[in-house]
Design a binder for these strands. Structure first.
Lengths: 186, 186
DNA sequence: AAAGGCATGTAAGGTGTTACATGATTGT
DNA sequence: ACAATCATGTAACACCTTACATGCCTTT
């Protein structure tokens, strides 16, 4: 079902490297020190992932400090890596994404700047708002379910409110991003 | 740092079994069909986890259909399992929880009914609201950072709004849960 | 009697975590 | 000279996913 070629971590690495060439350590630090939080700042995840991306030809590391036993590699994106990143960023948002992968959607949004054009970004945000509406409509009936406990109902309400907030955000972001490109008067 | 004995999935299983004795299949179905979504509805995760919990003495399976080659086990919680579940549910919420583990916090809230008393639940919600305030205050400065891209800023705003909404929710839930126990007039 | 849903389980494979090991650079 | 930080990497281990295998039960 999921025809993803890489893990979320790998795409996050590609996205950050696209914004600016970085070393493995700098990538780790980015995860640790910014609110991008839990896409893992552990060396045991980042270095093997970088090695794989390099072997797959999606990134290339330029070695500084060459004569040393400890090389320091600064990675940059290859054309192939750019394409792979675009393939991940591009798809429209589905209700299933909303049910299971909201954090990944926000990561995609944060990393798509400069890789998707304005109409592709608009499509992302529009389909995201729609998918939220659809998913929320599908889970709201659970609020009335008779076997729902008080805590279950409250937790579900919290989830629904979170998603409604994200839909509002998506529509606001859409306006902000399309701003400066006013509609031509007929 | 994390002195957790079990995985989130294992605690989720314990919590559901506490609400009502269930079979492995019924547990999987619960994950698949309710908005508890992605705590995994895959048999390759659920059955081994149940086996481990059984061997550890946290749950016990009553076998129906005994003579058959395919037993059907209905699991119920042992005293030891109840204690382990309580240990997971009880701790106050920290800013680090907010940064990395919000979904798990919501799961804890949904499953603590009937195991924690009213003052323990109150503490959970109060510390959650406080921890959110604290964490949001710590990440808000990033909005003004000069190297922030437009998408980065928008994504961060979305995250901040989500957390603010959860803090509002926590305080509302606190009122709802403490309702019916009015303060005695002096 | 066949089909489809109920129900339990295993095997292979990939990924992430933790902990550790090591080297380089900078500040005191 | 020493400590702290920068920086890269590996090994052991647990876990989850996917795919598969198997058996029971109800409906048509």
């Amino acid at each position: 079902m999921s025809n993803r070629l890489l893990t979320t971590l790998a795409y996050a690495l590609l996205g950050l490297i696209h914004q600016a060439p970085l070393s493995g350590y700098a990538l780790m630090r980015t995860f640790q020190t910014t609110p991008m939080g839990p896409y893992s700042g552990s060396p045991g995840a980042v270095y093997p992932a970088l090695g794989k991306l390099d072997r797959a030809g999606l990134i290339r590391g330029k070695v500084e400090r060459q004569a040393s036993l400890r090389p320091r590699r600064v990675y940059h994106l290859t054309t192939k890596g750019r394409d792979a990143l675009r393939q991940w960023l591009l798809p429209a948002v589905t209700a299933d994404d909303i049910a299971c992968r909201v954090p990944e959607l926000m990561l995609r949004f944060a990393l798509m700047e400069g890789l998707l054009n304005r109409s592709e970004v608009s499509r992302f945000l529009k389909t995201m708002a729609q998918a939220i509406d659809e998913y929320v409509a599908s889970i709201e009936p659970f609020l009335q379910a008779p076997d729902m406990t008080q805590h279950g109902r409250l937790a579900l309400q919290s989830g629904i409110e979170e998603l409604r907030g994200r839909a509002v955000w998506a529509r606001r972001a859409l306006r902000e991003i399309t701003a400066g490109r006013p509609k031509r008067k007929p």
